[in-house]
Design a protein around this nucleic acid. Structure first.
Lengths: 340, 340
DNA sequence: TTTAGCACTCGACTTTAATGAGTGCTAACG
DNA sequence: CGTTAGCACTCATTAAAGTCGAGTGCTAAA
């Protein structure tokens, strides 16, 4: 579809634009080492590339900028993956050597480092429920009729929720229920939880526990998935450094408001697939970020998909750099969690 | 120190400036209903007020703006507290009627509403440890040598942390330790925790638990206060609506970066006293917000101080409105937590 | 003590002109 | 036939000059 020369030129234009955020002119391209052509020739090619939809012209007498289609082609075919710089490697290794135990802290740290290495906003989603199993369930009474329900998963995550206990419940019934729960639900994947609860647990409770219907209602409350993903953010203000956003603050506001809204963030990530993915401009779910690109990477521990890291920047973002970093993090993430 | 007339004029100027964000001129003040004076007279008074340090002049031929001292005097002596508007009351009542159980959710909700009612940024700090006591301690093993330590407080808050268990610890020793802990630490205020741990618990463990030194190290890790306050934010982007900040984005960046840094936030709130407090401009701990004002209110449940809500805006913020709202929330906060 | 009048200041805004990077097109060149 | 030099034209950006008006300080009169 494109000649080698056109690919070379397109690539040069996009790379230049990513650096400068200014329409790229024919003359500056013709000066590139690898291209031994005059500005006039470049102009002809540019004109063709524009006709094919890879480039756009902000106004008649300006240079060209990449179109969404241009970026897509660039990401899919032209991008050249480099090595990480020694600085990047140092930062990442310092991260890996930290042996942080709590997943929360790790997430926060990873997000922090990514945003600092890229100068884009990093969004990390934790706690994918796939393959997580229940390790332990417990109720701790805290007031007359309230108790904290605590659920521990095999990943060491602790979920807790305050529940109301039916009044005048005979002492011991709660304990019986907990026994049933632990017996029946231990090692149950969260995905099968609901199902198992409604069937096995219900039956077992009917056998052993007095007033089980009331208690069962409590359980249903407890296990209904109110949990949005936990969102870890870092570098949100990096948005303010991008000249394309600084010009229109209302847009930055809209974008940053997304960060405060867990639901919106979850929606944004709802179509993320396994591995590394690039969502360019209007390919994104939320119109607010239709001139941003979001690069997502799922990460896993012991081959269990755990969550997603996303890097959000302008469509004119440094795809190569971000992809390299995410590749690295994504592959070696378990090392961090497990402490090298 | 100030005549009644001067107070009236100062008040009028500040109120005008809060609305308009523009230097206030003598003519506009002389038009005020309550002031039956000509612009020339106002000018003389303004000149005096400036000499006394309550007003400033951006440049020779401009109106006056309040100085920090002016705001301080305004807040301390001139501010008139009004009633909440019916809209505000509605919003707050809808909040109170929600019966949300989890403190986390409540905090988030309160922050959300405050930021929407004020159009300033709201920062809520949860989990003041004063008067919180320990209700239950437990260890749940999750891998060979790891366990989740869970601490439940009387407020229903659950703290959890992953700890490493000494290798080849005889089964049962962990349990023994937990028994000791629960026995000795139950109902201990968090403030006395460290002390009690080092003395009573240590002794008791020495008696009953094998290899207690190793386990004790684990405990020390567990109870060291790594816990920054949990920070709930809402309306961070409201900063971008304030014209004084829009002009200098680097400043907004600095401010918003604080929000991402738990430590900085905690420092910012470190000097907060009981009740409602106004921190104007340079009175604030962090230089980044030296042209902001922070209004803080401690809130309590059952007379136990729980945490702080802070509203952050430009020094030219609507003190009256915010104070009214915080007063209300602060007094009736328990209702929300307890579900009316 | 208050006020009207007046000259003066100075930021904000508008207008105009100059600049220059970039294009498209045409004609010549190898 | 692809490539390139030349040239007229476009148009955003920047700078300079000029206008406007809100506001002040001071003086003198009520």
């Amino acid at each position: 579809m494109l000649t080698d020369r056109q690919r070379l030129i397109l690539s040069a234009i996009i790379n230049d634009y990513i650096d400068s955020n200014e329409p790229v002119g024919s003359r500056s391209i013709s000066k590139h080492e690898k291209i031994g052509l005059s500005a006039a020739t470049i102009r002809n090619e540019m004109s063709d590339l524009e006709a094919m939809g890879f480039l756009e012209q902000p106004h008649t007498s300006a240079g060209r900028i990449p179109s969404q289609k241009g970026y897509r082609y660039f990401v899919d075919h032209l991008i050249e993956r480099g090595r990480l710089s020694s600085h990047e490697l140092n930062v990442l290794h310092s991260l890996f050597s930290q042996k942080i135990d709590e997943t929360e802290k790790v997430m926060q740290q990873v997000a922090f480092m990514m945003s600092h290495l890229t100068n884009y906003t990093t969004i990390a989603l934790g706690g994918e429920i796939k393959n997580t199993t229940i390790k332990h369930i417990q109720f701790v009474p805290i007031q007359d009729n309230k108790a904290v329900a605590i659920i521990v998963t095999n990943t060491g995550h602790v979920e807790n929720k305050i529940v109301t206990i039916p009044p005048q419940l005979p002492i011991g019934e709660l304990e019986k229920m907990v026994n049933v729960l632990n017996h029946k639900l231990k090692d149950t994947p969260l995905t099968q939880l609901k199902e198992k609860l409604m069937q096995e647990v219900r039956m077992e409770m009917a056998k052993h526990v007095a007033r089980y219907e009331e208690l069962f209602i409590v359980l249903q409350q407890l296990f209904t998935p109110d949990q949005d993903h936990k969102v870890y953010l870092s570098g949100t203000t990096n948005m303010l450094d991008q000249p394309e956003f600084t010009k229109d603050l209302t847009q930055v506001k809209k974008i940053m408001n997304i960060f405060e809204d867990n639901q919106a963030v979850t929606r944004l990530f709802s179509s993320v697939n396994h591995g590394i993915q690039v969502h360019i401009g209007e390919e994104n779910k939320l119109t607010e970020i239709n001139n941003c690109s979001l690069i997502t990477a799922t990460y896993a521990i012991d081959d269990e998909t755990m969550g997603v890291i996303g890097i959000l920047g302008p469509t004119r973002m440094n795809y190569g750099k971000v992809l390299n970093l995410l590749d690295y993090i994504s592959n070696d993430f378990q090392k961090v969690i497990k402490g090298h």
